[in-house]
């Protein structure tokens, strides 16, 4: 790509005047984008509830869900949201080492979550196409899993960049913050998903 135009570019003519820089709006942009993402999940949630209401038995016999493993997974994912926050707190104090430590732990917890989910898929006695419930189950958890995976990549990206001296600092950590926000989002979606798919079967 050639010739990017930047809001404070020092070029073409009289650069000193009024080439002011605007504030960093990326965090705000991400938040607005996530509202949109959430509505996509909301579409799935509503669909799930309607199908649940329409079905004679939900889940139908033979496609019951496992509860213990997902519960453990939930604990892991929810606590990872606190862990990642420590990383954010650390970098705000300029402590890159702390950031790396907490983000690494978060990444590990995310990976455990994903492995747990794959294990669950492998041990359940039914697959994506078994019935309408299993359609919903795999689609929704799978789609969420994809988001966890993306969040994981973001965290790994932060870790990778943080190797460079001065890349992040007390005043310069937008990327860190964005990864954290995304991770919280993934977490919140999971809590709703877990309630719908797993907890509702208890009622």
């Amino acid at each position: 790509m050639q010739g990017t135009v930047d809001s404070n570019s020092q070029s073409a003519g009289d650069a000193a005047i009024a080439h002011e820089e605007h504030q960093d709006l990326r965090v705000l942009g991400l938040l607005i984008f996530l509202c949109s993402e959430f509505l996509m999940f909301a579409g799935f949630f509503v669909l799930f509830l309607v199908y649940r209401a329409e079905a004679a038995a939900w889940p139908p016999e033979g496609t019951e869900v496992e509860l213990l493993l997902p519960a453990i997974n939930t604990v892991i994912l929810v606590s990872s949201s606190f862990v990642i926050h420590y990383g954010d707190v650390a970098i705000k104090k300029g402590d890159v080492g702390g950031l790396r430590k907490w983000y690494l732990i978060t990444a590990a917890m995310g990976a455990v979550f994903l492995c747990g989910q794959i294990y669950e898929y492998a041990t359940l006695g039914y697959g994506l196409t078994t019935n309408l419930f299993s359609n919903c189950f795999y689609l929704m958890t799978g789609f969420h899993g994809l988001h966890v995976f993306i969040g994981l990549l973001l965290i790994l990206g932060v870790l990778w960049r943080s190797r460079r001296e001065g890349h992040y600092g007390a005043e310069k950590h937008t990327g860190v913050e964005m990864a954290e926000i995304y991770w919280h989002f993934v977490d919140i979606v999971w809590i709703v998903l877990f309630s719908l798919i797993y907890l509702l079967t208890l009622i």
Partner: peptide, 14 residues
């Protein structure tokens, strides 16, 4: 667009 497009996307993915 922000609030309606993702719902269409959900339907189309299904």
């Amino acid at each position: 667009a922000l609030f309606s497009t993702p719902v269409l996307a959900a339907g189309l993915v299904l």
